[in-house]
Design a binder for these strands. Structure first.
Lengths: 110, 110
DNA sequence: TCTTTATATACGGAAATATGAATATATCCA
DNA sequence: TGGATATATTCATATTTCCGTATATAAAGA
């Protein structure tokens, strides 16, 4: 494939991964995996001020990870694709393995 | 679960995701999926100066995504877990769907 | 229309991250 | 030991990301 094109794709790929690289956004995504929620409801879950929530939602929206739907005065956000959660779960498994490996090492030393 | 603990976990989860949020690191991970490589070989693939490669490898290493093994003067890096590639592939699929949706929209407008 | 409610954006500063260039460390071999 | 090769780290700087506050937009209801 054309080198420029590959770079462009990898850039977008990195960008979507960047959507996951914040604890609050991860919490938002898992919350939406339970079902669609409006901005206030998400704010309640995260215990965060509304503008902060909106900004994180914008980041996720731009990357196509959540989808907004206006319902009256509210905007209801939904997870766009279950595969996002599957990817998150896989990475969490990798994290768990890494941590238990390290703690096993720590015990072996002690 | 304890709230502090959940936050700590989400922080680590975000950190491992952050390991994926750079085009060069994605290229490195896919390159290592083909098989272990030393730093020079990775540098050849990326066409990047060696210190830059080492710094990216450090980030991936700290997050437990790649594993170094010294062999003589070389250090050979290997992917620590195939699930990392599966997660990357899932997210690339989500990206592809998002892009084709948008291009379908673009055509519908034109 | 005016007010209230829900959501989004703009701005300024703080903190994290990335990068090139230079330098340090570690290993091998003569 | 000294030189060559492979890898890692440091430093200064540039860029990005994040947050709180303030403000703007959009819809609902009186």
């Amino acid at each position: 494939m054309d080198k420029k094109l590959v770079q462009e794709i990898n850039h977008l790929h990195a960008e979507i991964c960047g959507g996951l690289s914040d604890p609050k956004r991860i919490t938002i995504l898992y919350a939406l995996a339970e079902g669609p929620k409006n901005v206030m409801e998400i704010g309640d879950v995260l215990e965060l001020p509304q503008p902060t929530v909106s900004r994180h939602l914008k980041i996720l929206r731009e990357r196509g990870m959540v989808v907004p739907e206006r319902r009256g005065a509210n905007i209801i956000y939904a997870l766009s694709d279950k595969r996002i959660i599957r990817a998150l779960d896989l990475l969490r498994e990798v994290l768990a393995d890494h941590l238990s490996q390290r703690s096993a090492l720590a015990e072996a030393i002690a």
